[in-house]
Amino acid sequence: MTAEWPSIGVIIPTRDRPAMLARAIDSVSIQDYPGRLRMIIVYDQAEPDYMLARSGERPLMVLVNWRTPGLAGARNTGILALDTELVAFCDDDDTWAPDKLRRQVETLGGAEFGTCAMEVEYADRITPRLAGISLVGVTDLVRSRMAMLHASSFLIRRSSLVNADQLGLVAEDAPGSQNEDWDLLLRAAKRGAIRHLDEPLVRVAWGRTSYFAYEYDTKVASLRWMMERHPEIARSDIGAARVYGQLACWSAANGDKESALQYARQAVRSNWREPRAAIALAAATGVVKVENVLSALHKRGRGI
């Protein structure tokens, strides 16, 4: 029976969050997946706990990120250390439903890249985020980041990740390792439709558990990096307006009123209905705080 299911390696990058890491490890350990399953914990810019390593049916290896510091380098460290057919990511502050991997493998078939929906945990609320589709293409990802396709839902063929002529590794030049997941999704979609299981099998923690929640300079730099790397975003009125609106909001939150107004104008020129432009203008003029808007949106499982 096990031989009929592809082997899977699960990469959990971590940094100084032992309690959350323990939850993530437990959620992977109890998967009802019939095939071979192993985990790699990659410590990024943190002292590793080698006592977590174990052998057995579902072995766990502990590594230190030896590549570029950050999430992308940590994931690539894990990818290159694996020998499994498939690779899955799970952030250390996220957890999986027990049938996540089995259900995803059944949906993936012979495809290269698969995802599933998620539910957002913020404060005392749990909010499902569904995509409403089963196949995700470039147009979908240009118009929207599709936040429900979270990195902790990714299931990818390792052979494609390690081959630069195919999908290739996670982009380590992404500023602050932000939007590297959106970039990977877009690169995958350009090679073929992403198989999406539209059920919330991943629980994602939002809020202050993120190391980058309030690093606005990094948010701005990573979005500009995405637009340079994927020019089709700028060619989409809706997609460009969304990104310019985000740039305006993060600039306003960072106190850069001039840039906020400039990006807001670009957002409106692309799509006058873009709501982020109004949020940014209100924030730039002191009417609201971006953090307060973001908190209200997070309670509904949404973001800016």
Rank of each mutant, 00 (worst) to 15 (best):
K289L: 15
L21N: 01
L247W: 12
D173L: 05
Y211C: 06
Y211K: 13
P48N: 01
M20E: 10
A3W: 10
E274Q: 15
I194A: 05
I126Q: 09
N76R: 04
L185V: 11
L71M: 12
L37F: 00
I156F: 07
L294G: 15
Y50E: 09
I41K: 01
I12T: 06
R302N: 06
I40D: 05
E119C: 05
G73R: 03
D26K: 11
R17N: 07
S160T: 10
A117K: 00
S251A: 14
A123S: 15
R54E: 00
G132S: 03
L82Y: 04
W225V: 10
E121A: 15
L52T: 00
G137E: 06
T77F: 05
A53W: 01
F212V: 12
R224V: 15
W96L: 06
R102S: 06
R208L: 13
L86S: 04
A53S: 04
Y50A: 07
Q166D: 12
D44H: 02
M227I: 10
F113T: 07
R276G: 14
L261D: 13
A277I: 10
E274M: 14
G78I: 02
D32P: 01
I8L: 04
T139F: 09
A189K: 04
A164D: 10
A164W: 10
S270A: 15
L185N: 09
N65K: 05
L186G: 09
G176A: 00
L167R: 05
V42E: 00
S222F: 08
L52M: 00
W206E: 09
S7I: 02
G255F: 07
R191T: 07
I25L: 05
A205S: 12
D140E: 09
I126D: 03
V138Q: 06
V142I: 14
L167P: 09
S29L: 10
F212C: 11
L135H: 09
R15F: 02
I156Q: 08
I79S: 06
G56W: 00
Y33W: 00
R203V: 02
G78S: 03
G70H: 04
W182N: 08
V42Y: 02
R145P: 15
D83V: 05
D94A: 03
W250Y: 13
E215W: 10
A264Q: 11
D237Q: 12
R54D: 00
I11H: 04
W250E: 11
Y211E: 10
W182K: 10
I40K: 06
A88C: 10
A248V: 14
R36P: 08
V243W: 09
R242H: 13
A241W: 07
